Structures are given as structure tokens and as C-alpha cells.
Simulated scan of single mutants.
Amino acid sequence: MMRKILPGIVFILSAQMATAEPVTVAALGDSLTQGYGLPQADGFVPQLERWLRDNGADVVLVNAGVSGDTSVGGAARLDWTLTPEVDALIVTLGGNDLLRGIDPSVTRTSLEKILSGAEDAGVEVLLIGMPAPANFGADYKAAFEANYSELAEAYGVLFVPNFLSALTDGGTDPSAARAFLQEDGIHPSAEGVARIVDTIGPVALELVEKAGGD
């Protein structure tokens, strides 16, 4: 009897593995996510997808980055970004809020709308923060950056404090980023993206594992 049962178990397990679908992750962001100025394969989303697969993840990343988008724009796009197949969400928004000097409270409201919507949809989230420049003043900088850490804690989501930390020696030397930026001085080069992915990759892998129920 046991000899008959074992092949059946093996068949069932094999069938389950064959039909298992990859975890789908949508990356909601601006030009940093979209891959502005780079060949498609060198952008953040393709490089991160390769990193995750090289590290054993069965994953598909969807590029939901729109150049020039603010956190308000990202929040407005959430409903059609969270299509039924999306299991997890990476949120990288706020860079254009800074460029436009948008009040940190506006950014906070938009980020909270995104996190709340993802929570309602049962979607795991990785929130990635953006560093505010000192020229806006200490109060603005503190309020803007606190948005990310405070909301990540409030919603219990995975969190990376600074998208650009890999380019700035952990945030201690902003001038160090120049070697890893494109000519516009804003967007990372392909090498810069690779450094960013190496830093964010382990947390993104944790996101995939959570979304996959591992």
C-alpha cells in the first residue's frame, strides 16, 4: 500500500510546484523607479528583479514609476496599480515633492493614502524614504523625513529610510553621490542603480517572502 501512496504524494507535490505562480510586485514611484535616462535593462525595476531572482526569488516586478510624479500623483494611481495579480508594493515617492517644496504634511497624507489602500487590499508593502536637503531648513527636513519612519511604524510595513544612501556613503557624504549620477546630477547611473539595488535587495527579498507566505 505504501508503495502506491508515495508516488501519489510525489505527483501532487510536483503538480503544486508546477502550478505555483511567481510573486508579483508593483514598484510605485517616480523617475527613480521608472529608470529615467537609462536603457530599460539598467533601470531600478529590471535590476532589482534580476537581483531577486539571482537570490532565489520567484518574482515578477511591474514598473509603476512615472517620471515627474509626486506623492499626490502616486496616490491617485494606486487603484489601477493594485491590479488583482499584485501581491506586494514597493513605494518610492517624494523626490518631486522636494523639488517643488511641497509641504511635508501633503506628502504625509498621500503616503498614508497609499499605505491604507494597500492594507485594505491585503498587499504587503516596502516603503522607501527620501532624504530632504538641508537648504529647506531643519524643521522641514525633520518633518519630511519623519513621514516615512512614522508611517512605516504605524502601518507595520517594511522600511528602507533612504533610497539614495548607497550613493552617499550611508548618508554621511552627499558629495560622494556625484560619481554615481547621470549628467543631470539627479538620477543615478546604471552603476548607481546597481549600488542602490544591492542595498535595498535584501529588504525587497523579505517583502517577496512575506507576500508569498514563506
Score class of each variant (00 low, 15 high):
residue 91 V to E: 04
residue 169 D to H: 07
residue 16 Q to R: 03
residue 10 V to P: 03
residue 82 L to I: 07
residue 207 L to A: 01
residue 164 L to G: 00
residue 60 V to T: 15
residue 24 T to C: 09
residue 21 E to P: 01
residue 19 T to A: 13
residue 160 V to C: 03
residue 150 E to S: 13
residue 45 V to A: 14
residue 14 S to I: 09
residue 41 A to K: 14
residue 12 I to D: 00
residue 152 A to H: 04
residue 179 A to Y: 05
residue 210 K to Y: 01
residue 65 G to K: 10
residue 164 L to V: 10
residue 37 G to N: 11
residue 200 I to D: 01
residue 172 T to G: 02
residue 110 S to D: 12
residue 94 G to L: 14
residue 34 Q to L: 10
residue 202 P to M: 05
residue 171 G to P: 00
residue 159 F to G: 01
residue 47 Q to L: 08
residue 199 T to G: 13
residue 15 A to K: 07
residue 213 G to E: 00
residue 104 P to S: 09
residue 201 G to E: 11
residue 116 S to I: 01
residue 147 N to V: 11
residue 175 S to F: 02
residue 153 E to F: 02
residue 87 D to M: 08
residue 158 L to S: 01
residue 91 V to R: 03
residue 23 V to H: 09
residue 187 H to R: 09
residue 21 E to W: 08
residue 163 F to W: 15
residue 45 V to Y: 06
residue 75 A to R: 04
residue 84 P to M: 06
residue 113 K to G: 12
residue 86 V to R: 09
residue 17 M to S: 12
residue 152 A to W: 03
residue 33 T to D: 08
residue 37 G to M: 07
residue 115 L to N: 00
residue 73 G to K: 06
residue 200 I to Q: 02
residue 18 A to W: 15
residue 81 T to M: 13
residue 117 G to K: 14
residue 74 G to R: 05
residue 57 A to H: 04
residue 36 Y to I: 02
residue 85 E to G: 00
residue 61 L to D: 05
residue 77 R to P: 11
residue 182 Q to V: 07
residue 160 V to R: 05
residue 22 P to G: 06
residue 198 D to F: 03
residue 138 A to V: 12
residue 49 E to V: 01
residue 79 D to Q: 11
residue 115 L to R: 05
residue 171 G to V: 04
residue 12 I to M: 12
residue 18 A to K: 08
residue 21 E to V: 08
residue 102 I to F: 13
residue 88 A to E: 12
residue 137 G to H: 11
residue 25 V to A: 13
residue 148 Y to R: 10
residue 201 G to A: 10
residue 70 T to A: 10
residue 143 A to E: 15
residue 38 L to M: 11
residue 206 E to N: 07
residue 182 Q to D: 10
residue 28 L to N: 11
residue 21 E to H: 05
residue 157 V to K: 00
residue 202 P to S: 06
residue 137 G to T: 09
residue 6 L to N: 05
residue 32 L to G: 02
residue 97 D to A: 01
residue 150 E to Q: 15
residue 110 S to P: 10
residue 174 P to E: 10
residue 31 S to N: 05
residue 73 G to W: 13
residue 8 G to A: 11
residue 74 G to W: 06
residue 214 D to H: 13
residue 186 I to P: 09
residue 17 M to T: 05
residue 162 N to L: 02
residue 99 L to F: 08
residue 51 W to T: 04
residue 155 Y to P: 06
residue 212 G to R: 04
residue 175 S to V: 02
residue 59 V to A: 13
residue 48 L to D: 10
residue 102 I to G: 07
residue 37 G to I: 05
residue 82 L to P: 03
residue 112 E to F: 07
residue 57 A to M: 14
residue 119 E to H: 06
residue 148 Y to N: 04
residue 75 A to F: 01
residue 100 R to L: 15
residue 142 A to F: 02
residue 2 M to K: 11
